[in-house]
Computed example of a mutant assay.
Amino acid sequence: MAIGVPSMELHRSSPLLSGGRGNTCLQKKPFFVQAKRLVGMEKASTRPGTQESGQTKKRAPLVRGTVSPPLPVPGNIPRPPYVGTEYVPEIAKEIQMHDKEGIVHMRAACELAARVLDYAGTLVKPSVTTDEIDKAVHKMIIDAGAYPSPLGYGGFPKSVCTSVNECMCHGIPDSRELQDGDIINIDVTVYLNGYHGDTSKTFLCGEVDEASKRLVKVTEECLLRGISTCKHGTSFKKIGRRISEHAERNGFGVVECFVGHGVGRVFHSEPIIYHQRNNRPGQMIEGQTFTIEPIISMGSIECDMWDDGWTAVTTDGSLAAQFEHTILITRTGAEILTKC
């Protein structure tokens, strides 16, 4: 799951799982966002690189459905330390390094997260609600003896994030039915034997127009190109450069207000992974694990935050897609731990 750009970068309050409440991700009521959507669709259809793939299908603005109560977790399943509190944990300063035993646990957590995500994708079809997806994901995770990491993180009420169409990330599952032609990112994180495994993917719902398919394809390619730069001793800034080059070459923009992060025993830690061009210092170290999770937009790269404090949507209503993997840095490259 992405985190917001840390407060020291954009002078924000402490970052939330949803990206913080500050200068870029302003809290806006849904009807303000909806009013911008048609303008956003017009911008997206004329952005360089989209014309040859056809116009984007006009969709109704994203609206909030009814959010059901959080699902119960059996008492014998270990919880992350933030569960039961309302505070949002600070991003840990430690670089999460793993010995052989730690790597075994990371592989297990990430393998489970990947399987859950793959299963969740099979549920994506018109008329299915995101709440139904949440229930299915929740059951699969607890049946495996794991805890759904988003549940209770800073008060997040659900076990998975479901981000539809213009939602950049961290959409709350609800009673809204998926529509033919939607795209939806499902973001799964599990806590197993004291370790978090984190992954997400954007799925197509029914018959999706070619422009939207292209956005999804390019976004996945951006992730894989970012990962391809990774190995011991490589500068983190190469990730953002490679992602930006590919997105811009295809006429899309890289969302800057959400970042990847270290992951392991702690859900969110250093290093912060910027997906856009940057000059941040730091090099990758063999044995560390972190996420890369670019969000790519057809239009605006700025976001509005709904007043639920979590749902982040493009300011102009244009479509956004995201893909995410947890990776392990090795001497010669990177192992994708959440590859299904």
Rank of each mutant, 00 (worst) to 15 (best):
T130C: 07
V33R: 05
E94C: 07
Q51G: 09
G19E: 07
I272T: 15
F236R: 11
L215K: 10
N250P: 08
S7H: 14
A120H: 01
C161D: 11
R249C: 00
D182M: 02
E335I: 10
P157V: 04
D316H: 07
I239M: 11
T46R: 15
V190T: 14
V104D: 09
G253N: 14
V39S: 10
D180V: 07
E9Q: 15
V208M: 04
A44D: 12
L71S: 05
S53D: 06
Y82W: 14
D134K: 11
I227E: 04
I336C: 08
E111M: 03
R280Q: 13
D308F: 06
S149H: 10
K139G: 11
V263M: 12
I141A: 06
T229W: 01
E177S: 07
E177L: 05
T202L: 08
S318P: 10
D118M: 05
K93S: 14
P74V: 13
G264H: 06
C340W: 12
M168R: 07
H170V: 09
A60S: 15
H325P: 01
I227N: 02
F203Y: 15
C205T: 01
T56W: 10
E286R: 12
T130R: 09
M305L: 15
E286T: 06
R277N: 12
V104S: 11
C257V: 01
I142L: 02
S53M: 11
H232Y: 12
C167N: 06
K28I: 12
T122D: 03
H98T: 02
E256P: 00
